[in-house]
């Protein structure tokens, strides 16, 4: 349908609707959408369940949203809680609250400031995290930049530039708070492979790359590097080989 001739749909209070093609879809309160939707923009402020697939240019989630199908968006912001049962493709995704994707998550730019769980693979040109994440499959991105403000884990990590840094919270009071709250901030992965790799506070079985720099707080069983290898601080690297 012509993008100009679309109508709006608003649910305020409690309501349900079938799917369809809309310009703006907004839900304030409790809403259920039964079929597939194709919208220019979606704003979900309350508790919302989408039973079908979603196609939207913009998708903003402030409340608690469940999508049973797949999501295809240009720009998606999760400030509340999102649970996507299918695959998700977002050109730009920002997660400030928490997001769970049962399928694969793909995109151009993914930014995690809260928490994210992906049961499949996650791939993007740029993946930036300042929160925690769990990726059951492969995290594959051109640029991976992780600042550790929580527990981060992925089965495999691969990309061009991979940089993992610990948080900046190193004051003694914060350290004491961390210890009583059992706060862990580290990255755990089976394998990490890339061209240029810098790691802090990372536990991995194998790290492979052209240039590998192991910073403080790491435990790595095996490093295989092509050009350059360096180890700093109190890190443990059991074995390192130039290949």
């Amino acid at each position: 349908m012509d993008k100009e001739n679309r109508r709006d749909l608003t649910i305020s209070g409690t309501g349900s609707a079938n799917g369809g093609v809309y310009d703006r879809l907004s839900i304030n309160g409790e809403g259920r959408i039964h079929g597939d939707v194709d919208c220019n923009s979606i704003k979900a402020y309350g508790v919302t369940t989408f039973k079908g697939n979603i196609k939207a240019e913009r998708f903003d989630i402030v409340g608690e949203t469940t999508v049973k199908g797949e999501v295809h968006t240009d720009e998606m912001k999760v400030k509340g809680q999102a649970h996507i049962h299918g695959q998700a493709h977002c050109q730009e995704l920002t997660v400030i609250g928490s997001a769970t994707v049962n399928g694969n998550l793909t995109g151009e730019e993914i930014e995690i400031k809260g928490g994210a769980t992906v049961n499949g693979d996650c791939s993007a040109e740029s993946f930036q995290a300042r929160g925690g994440f769990t990726i059951d499959g492969l995290l594959n991105a051109g640029l991976i930049h992780v600042r550790l403000y929580g527990k981060c884990q992925a089965r495999e990590i691969g990309g061009e530039t991979i940089r993992v840094e610990k948080d900046g919270l190193d004051f003694s009071l914060v350290k004491w708070l961390k210890s009583i709250l059992h706060y862990t901030n580290e990255l755990v992965a089976d394998t990490i492979e890339g061209d240029d790799i810098y790691l802090e506070k990372t536990k991995a079985k194998v790290v492979r790359g052209n240039n590998v720099l192991i910073g403080p707080g790491c435990e790595i069983e095996l490093v295989e590097y092509k050009n350059h290898f360096e180890q700093k601080g109190d890190s443990i690297v059991k074995e390192h080989n130039q290949v």
Binding site: S123, N140, E160
Partner: peptide
């Protein structure tokens, strides 16, 4: 080719998913 290139080609679907075969070896998967 480098790891970065291989992962980039995988992201761009130049190499099909089915060709990545995971097997257990003494260093893990």
């Amino acid at each position: 080719i480098s790891y970065g290139q291989l992962y980039r080609w995988k992201r761009k679907n130049l190499i099909p998913e089915e060709w990545f075969i995971r097997k257990s070896t003494y260093t893990g998967q």
